[in-house]
Design a protein around this nucleic acid. Sequence first.
DNA 1: TTTAAAAACTCTACGGCGTAGAATAATTCG
DNA 2: CGAATTATTCTACGCCGTAGAGTTTTTAAA
Lengths: 183, 183
Amino acid sequence: MSVKTGKRGRPSQLSAERIVECAKAMQVKTGKIPSIRALSAELEVDPMAIYHYFRNKSALLEAVCLSLIEAIHNPQGEDWRAEIVALSQSYLTLLSTHPGLLETLLSMTGTGPAQVFIERYERALRPLVLPQETLNQSRDLLVDYLHGYALAMQGSQGALTIELLDGPLSFWMRALEREAAEA
Amino acid sequence: MSVKTGKRGRPSQLSAERIVECAKAMQVKTGKIPSIRALSAELEVDPMAIYHYFRNKSALLEAVCLSLIEAIHNPQGEDWRAEIVALSQSYLTLLSTHPGLLETLLSMTGTGPAQVFIERYERALRPLVLPQETLNQSRDLLVDYLHGYALAMQGSQGALTIELLDGPLSFWMRALEREAAEA
DNA sequence: TTTAAAAACTCTACGGCGTAGAATAATTCG
DNA sequence: CGAATTATTCTACGCCGTAGAGTTTTTAAA
């Protein structure tokens, strides 16, 4: 945690980044979150060394989550459908590539991936004129749908694919479109 | 597991039902799934006794899930909106009353709560004339939304309520209504 | 009445987990 | 050289699920 960057003291072979990257790599490779012991073995270090950089395992997992944010599509254009599809797909890909992080992600209070998704969702829908309430309702529906589907994907190993997002998502977009047409 | 009901052998103080009921009660009380050790302590029995009735812990949790099915609303009427609301609310209540069972539930292949929800969903929407594809899309959207929201509820301890289901659900129902009007 | 079979349950133990707390190692500054 | 500072390791505790062998309690056959 509080790692001083001054030159005094024993030099470090480890770093928060190295730990996070290693944890991420192991998770992608094995499909599940590594134990602290397995992680430290991979880093060729004592398990307790991890705790010099992270308060506890949960703090480490939050750091992993934060490092994933950059993989979320950042909408810039005015084609809201295309942006929503790209946004949803990138988010779902992220979630399904890193199973087991969902709980951590949802318990994060600050600027986690979920929060970032919501911000970019709102940016993507800027071209649409809609009452705030409708915007909120559709947002909650979409966000929690994605979380739920990601959970289902990790439950039924491999049977579900990212492509199956398309159907429900197009239903959702039609709905939004009609709401906009009415306003 | 394979519990013979014949009269031979030592009589049993335990039963699969008693174990399941106790596990359920402890889970509702503490908000999390009990360990086998804690469960067996409550039952005043050796931990390994549980394994006479269940192959492993996961099988026990599946049994708990099965016992929850009866709490799911069973639509009989023709007012599809009312039925969907009741169905969704009962399902979400179930999920939020029994946190930690979501993963088990989603990994169940046979007739689990999720499967039953889907059957009753289809029954509820019988009055509506809709293409099968639309029916599937909206179903997946709703089911996974509910799972995602349940997960969010258990993540952010107590901050989210069942009432917050109303907004997204009404958006979803408006969408379905418009799809039906168009057909 | 003894005995064997059967069923229900207990005992002991293993290997895993997260992590607390004390000890040690390696560096820099006075 | 010694003291301070930082990084890392060592040892140990209390959880967890559960394998495998042993024990208790019953019924049915000999």
